[in-house]
């Protein structure tokens, strides 16, 4: 399983190195230690990339977003299985790291929303901690209301933006 992850990392890394998107690649909120690791353990089995549970649409691990009510940061029970699945993956893959990114809808204060996004990311981290995931595997970051996924100005977009995303390092 480690090899699968590393090969994914390596592919992403090589793409970043050769490629154009330097800016977005470099610092997605996760400290990038993957270069050394990836380079030391060059994988041979390229076919296994396709079977990555993190990206397999039939696997709950491919689901990455926890949604919240307005001005709330508690992880609702319907998202517990998702966070539990990622926690289980992280405890069995000690080398895997995630960035949990908190987001808010556009209403209210930008600074308060930055703090609220931080609380949302933190709420996911705390559930993961309880389930045995080490803090060294999780970095939290808040984008507040600055990076909306949906850009209309009503509840249909706002509910999409009140969200914490789980992003694996190297993705």
């Amino acid at each position: 399983m480690n090899k699968i992850l590393f090969s994914t990392l390596l592919v992403a890394l090589l793409a970043g190195c050769a490629g154009q998107d330097v800016k977005d690649q470099s610092k997605a909120g996760v400290e990038d230690r993957s270069a050394q690791q990836g380079a030391q353990t060059a994988p041979s089995d390229q076919k296994s990339v396709g079977a990555n549970p993190l990206t397999d649409p039939s696997n709950i691990l491919s689901k990455r977003s926890v949604f919240y009510d307005f001005d709330k940061y508690d992880v609702k029970s319907e998202y517990k299985p998702l966070v539990e699945a990622h926690s289980k993956y992280l405890t069995s893959h000690k080398d895997a790291k995630v960035a949990v990114q908190g987001n808010c809808d556009e209403r209210g204060s930008r600074e308060y929303n930055l703090s609220l996004g931080n609380r949302r990311a933190d709420s996911v981290r705390k559930v993961m901690n309880v389930l045995g995931v080490s803090d060294s595997q999780i970095e939290t970051v808040s984008f507040g209301e600055e990076k909306p996924r949906a850009t209309c100005h009503d509840e249909s977009c706002w509910k999409e933006n009140r969200r914490a995303d789980i992003a694996y390092q190297g993705e």
Partner: peptide, 15 residues
């Protein structure tokens, strides 16, 4: 390692 350095350099010049 080389790749990382290159990345860092590009980020710097972009900034």
């Amino acid at each position: 390692m080389r790749c990382q350095k290159l990345l860092a350099k590009r980020v710097q010049s972009f900034v």
